[in-house]
Design a protein around this nucleic acid. Structure first.
Lengths: 223, 223
DNA sequence: ATACTCCATATTGTATACATTATGCCAACC
DNA sequence: GGTTGGCATAATGTATACAATATGGAGTAT
């Protein structure tokens, strides 16, 4: 499950993670400028690694660069979010179908394990972990599709979803169990090698999560 | 049709384009290191904009960064290219289907116009222009899908395709007309609002171009 | 009051110097 | 002979100084 290299090797990488976390924890609000000087004071490093980190974050569109004005947190519009989820539904469906077609036994086991972990976290009501394992589920399925380019594309889309999610924690507490049930349905179809069913369940799952993302929008536009 | 801002506003942008062209024209071969010092001498600017430009190019995966070693041109493997085309087939198919569903009359006209231009360029045997207009065709269809996120994703995949293409100009001269015929079939389906047909034709079109990309591989691995 | 110009200030863009790490060669040793 | 260690060199990583540009407000003319 190695996700974080054990020791940070460059200041740029460290800055990248810290800035990303600052964004994900809502320290920077959508639409707000991310000033280089502010970050140098906050992180205690020079502008160079800050700028590089921001370029890295630009790759995941967690910030957008505007020439000679700086970087800012993007403000998603409703139509953008819809476009986003439409694409994601198609790709998650595709990944699930391919996983049903050619996942190795090990990969199927991996998904099952992730699902079990999510189950436990859910029972313990450890929500940060629940989110973590749910993300992991999508990654595992993408991996099992046997298409690394697809997996990477989905990973990038997923980080953006997390950005939306920051905006929309308006206490939907019945969602987690629904999500978990849908994940299990997708897994069952993959395990049973039912490509069509896997695709349909995965697509539906994404579409179901769209309203939650949209619900966070109004709070943003009113600031 | 505005694609290039009329005047370059920053050195970084200028460097970005020049380096990209150097890669696309084969000045840097796959697997080769792209040294910052070499580029500063070649372009006559300092390292800072060079590094920023390389980060930009990294976003399109025209170069890959290796920590404390620098940037290099990636060497695609056969399975990567296959994964790449599999994803692209799915997305181009999806885009064509959506375009058939909701392209505006203006967008349909735009595609028709691009196709006509490609036709003329083909008749004149102006191959660089043919390639240009063919790329334009895919962009126009993606635009007509009504999903900007999808269009952008496809645009990035397309730049990578162009990278493969650099490797594989082994004189396939019957391809252009085949390509053009397939493009017209896709357009006809879109114009007739036949979603399923549009998707199928677009998918087939991508799959047809896979062998050409693979044919360029052997020449790379033998160097 | 409104719009417009000009200027001070803040911010990003670029160059460059210095620090740190990787690379390759050569010699010494087993 | 092959391997290892260290050193010179070259490359990237980071900090900082300076340049160019954008921003906002004061003041003035209409």
């Amino acid at each position: 499950m190695e996700s974080t290299p054990l020791q940070v090797r460059t200041v740029t990488e460290a800055a990248y993670r810290q800035i990303r976390d600052l964004i994900l924890t809502g320290h920077f609000a959508p639409g707000q400028w991310v000033r280089e000087r502010e970050l140098t004071e906050l992180l205690g490093v020079s502008r160079t690694p800050i700028r590089e980190a921001l370029r890295l974050l630009e790759q995941e569109q967690m910030v957008v660069a505007e020439s000679r004005k700086g970087f800012r947190i993007p403000v998603p519009t409703e139509s953008e979010i819809r476009a986003f989820y439409e694409l994601r539904a198609e790709l998650e469906g595709f990944a699930a179908a391919k996983a049903a077609h050619r996942a190795t036994p090990e990969q199927v086991g991996e998904i099952r394990w992730v699902l079990a972990e999510a189950d436990e976290a859910l029972a313990r009501e450890e929500w940060p972990q629940v989110i973590q394992w749910n993300n992991q589920f999508h990654q595992a399925v993408a991996q099992a599709s046997g298409n690394a380019v697809l997996a990477q594309t989905l990973a990038k889309l997923q980080t953006q979803v997390n950005l939306f999610r920051v905006l929309s924690w308006t206490g939907h507490r019945e969602r987690p169990s629904t999500t978990h049930r849908q994940h299990r349905e997708i897994f069952n179809a993959i395990e049973a090698r039912q490509e069509g069913t896997a695709r349909a369940r995965a697509e539906d799952h994404i579409w179901d999560s769209l309203p939650l993302a949209l619900s966070g929008l109004s709070s943003v536009h009113h600031q």
